[in-house]
Every structure is written in structure tokens, then in C-alpha cells.
């Protein structure tokens, strides 16, 4: 209890900052990933080369991106957000792409046969059918981003990582937990929220057919 009297306010601010980083970067990442995923699914012959290259970049630890961007952009939130957004892209992109490619040919043919334009086919048939996969990618990205956002504190930009870094430096397990538990709660909370979103977005007719 004493702990909360001392750190309560800072913890709430840190939580908000952390959430802000996560939401902004996941939103940006999602938008980019969706567009890229759709574009790549139109040219699978190139995507076959591009996707593995992207997955290699995915192996670069987040800390490196933040570190390098920090050198060039300095200590501003944009550094953190753009680094996190880059990380949020890949799982969503991959799931969008495979989700779109996995759609059975017959639906596309039926859509064409019904006189749907390519854009209408995408909007009304392909994206709804790929939505379970896309949302699963979003969920994964969000959970990762909550975890990576801890790194903001490494360059002095706050968030729940602050508690964790200070805690590690001072060997104070209370402080580490004060950073870790809210961050885990945030990850779980957001993934529950996405489960709700899933129920709204994924059309009823395909919910049982995973």
C-alpha cells in the first residue's frame, strides 16, 4: 500500500503513456500491413520472394531499431512509435497475405461471375473471408507490441518500462513487478478486446468454419 502512495500517480501516467505507444503504433502498423498484404496478394509471384526477406528483417531485435532511430531522430515519441509500428506490421501482413491467398478459388470465380468488380470482390468477399486470419495477426502484433514498448524507457521516453529498468538497476523486485504486471494486464486486456472485435468483424456464416 505504501508502494502505491509513493508510485501510484507515476504508475498511472506510465500506463497511459505505454498504452498510447501501443495503440498508435499498432494502428499505424495495421493500416500499413493491411494495404501491403492486399497488394502482395495480387502479385503472389513477387510476394514469394518479398515475404521471406521481410521475415528476415523481423529477426532484428526491437532494441536495435529503437537504438538506431534514436541516433537519427533523437529522443522523441516518434522514434518509439515508428520502431514499434515496424514490428507490428509483420504478423498482420503475413496473416493478411496468407488469409487472402487461402480463399478458395470458387468464391473468387463466383464473385467474378456475378459481375463484381475486383474492388468489390476484395471488399465484400475476400476481406470478410480472410478476416479471422487478419484479426489473429492483429492480436499477435498487439501482444508483442505491449512487450516491446518497454524499450521506450531505454531511451528515456517513459512507459511501464521505466519501472522495469529502474527495478533491474536497483535490484528492486517491487518496481519490476510494478512494471511487469500492468503490462501483462494490458496485453491480456487488449487481446480480450480484440476477441470481442473478432466477434463483431468476422461474419457469422464463417465463424464455425475456422
Amino acid at each position: 500500500m505504501i508502494f502505491f502512495e509513493t508510485y501510484g500517480d507515476r504508475l498511472i501516467t506510465a500506463f497511459q503513456v505505454h498504452l498510447f505507444y501501443v495503440l498508435t503504433s499498432v494502428t499505424i502498423g495495421f493500416a500499413i500491413a493491411l494495404v501491403l498484404g492486399i497488394l502482395l496478394s495480387r502479385v503472389p509471384q513477387y510476394a514469394k520472394v518479398i515475404m521471406p526477406l521481410l521475415s528476415v528483417f523481423q529477426t532484428i531485435p526491437g532494441i536495435v531499431f529503437i537504438g538506431i532511430l534514436f541516433l537519427y531522430l533523437g529522443m522523441i515519441p516518434a522514434t518509439v512509435i515508428s520502431a514499434l509500428a515496424v514490428y507490428a506490421i509483420f504478423p498482420i501482413l503475413k496473416n493478411t497475405y496468407t488469409g487472402l491467398l487461402d480463399i478458395k478459388k470458387e468464391y473468387i470465380e463466383a464473385a467474378k461471375g456475378c459481375g463484381m468488380s475486383p474492388f468489390q470482390t476484395l471488399l465484400e468477399v475476400e476481406l470478410p473471408l480472410a478476416s479471422p486470419s487478419i484479426i489473429a495477426g492483429l492480436r499477435m502484433s498487439t501482444i508483442y507490441t505491449v512487450s516491446w514498448a518497454v524499450l521506450a524507457a531505454m531511451i528515456g521516453l517513459g512507459g511501464l518500462g521505466e519501472f522495469i529498468y529502474i527495478g533491474i538497476a536497483s535490484n528492486n523486485d517491487q518496481l519490476i513487478l510494478a512494471g511487469a504486471i500492468p503490462s501483462a494486464i494490458m496485453a491480456i486486456g487488449l487481446s480480450l478486446l480484440i476477441d470481442v472485435l473478432r466477434r463483431v468483424v468476422v461474419p457469422k456464416g464463417i465463424r464455425s468454419v475456422k
Binding site: 478458395k104 470458387e106 468464391y107 470465380e109 463466383a110 464473385a111 461471375g113 465484400e124 468477399v125 470478410p128 473471408l129 461474419p203 456464416g205 464463417i206 468454419v209
Partner: peptide, 8 residues
């Protein structure tokens, strides 16, 4: 293959 859109 019928091809009814399963989402509709």
C-alpha cells in the same frame, strides 16, 4: 463448387 459466399 456452388461458391455461395459463406460470409453472406
Amino acid at each position: 463448387q456452388i461458391g455461395l459466399f459463406p460470409n453472406m
